[in-house]
């Protein structure tokens, strides 16, 4: 249980696939025009991550090293096809607004990176949990970026109007350039929060050193 929580924290914050590892930039920039799209994209990728990690971990001893990447891609694309068909059947409007980016989950580097770095080397249960943690981290990052972009660029949150008709949204934020700007600021903010503890320690060390130096000077 403790390991499970640690893995979750790792995936969502300390080793967040999007905000810290900077993987999966394409869907992050392209599908975060609205929070709804971001949640849809994030969950679709999470489902694929969990199952591809699970099956790659199950098959890790059968897959020859030389062809492992190709084998991973076959497994991943199988699950992506399933997710795509399911979305087409049950959430058709989301399927339409995400468009080409659903089949493109096949080449999402987060999924391949987790397969290569984790699932092919670890047991089945931890691999599935890793898929879940990384997927949630990806979803979390997408929602963060999409929240900023949708509120600033469209004046809405989850499709609900926030400021009334008097608000003129900054259209740039739902354009591609706005995606880059927002992502940069979100990464900077998350980095600041992650480093807060370390910053404090560093500052304390520094002030201690300064005090010692002052003491030496007076002596």
């Amino acid at each position: 249980m403790k390991g499970f929580l640690k893995q979750l924290k790792e995936g969502i914050l300390d080793n967040n696939p999007t905000l810290v590892q900077l993987l999966g930039m394409c869907p992050t920039l392209a599908t975060t025009t609205s929070v709804k799209n971001a949640i849809g994209m994030g969950l679709a990728a999470t489902v694929v991550l969990i199952f591809s990690n699970l099956f790659i971990s199950l098959l890790r001893k059968f897959i020859p090293k030389q062809v492992r990447i190709a084998a991973f891609i076959v497994i991943i694309s199988g699950f992506v096809t399933m997710v795509e068909l399911l979305m087409k059947a049950f959430v058709y409007s989301l399927y339409q607004s995400l468009g080409i980016f659903i089949p493109l989950i096949v080449v999402n580097c987060i999924i391949l990176a987790r397969a290569e770095a984790y699932a092919s080397k670890n047991k089945v249960l931890p691999s599935a949990v890793d898929g879940l943690a990384m997927g949630l981290g990806f979803t979390f990052a997408l929602i963060l970026v999409a929240t900023v972009r949708e509120i600033v660029g469209n004046g809405t949150f989850m499709g609900l109007s926030l400021f009334g008709d008097g608000y003129a949204p900054a259209l740039l934020f739902i354009m591609p350039a706005g995606a880059f700007l927002t992502l940069g600021f979100v990464i900077a903010a998350v980095q600041k929060i992650r480093n807060m503890g370390q910053d404090k320690e560093r500052m304390e060390k520094l002030s201690k050193l300064e005090e010692e130096a002052e003491k030496e000077e007076t002596v």
């Binding site: 003129a168 949204p169 900054a170 259209l171 740039l172 934020f173 354009m175 350039a177």
Partner: peptide, 10 residues
């Protein structure tokens, strides 16, 4: 350019 792309009408 930022303003122009954000508020083209204004």
């Amino acid at each position: 350019v930022f303003l122009f792309l954000s508020w083209p009408d204004k």
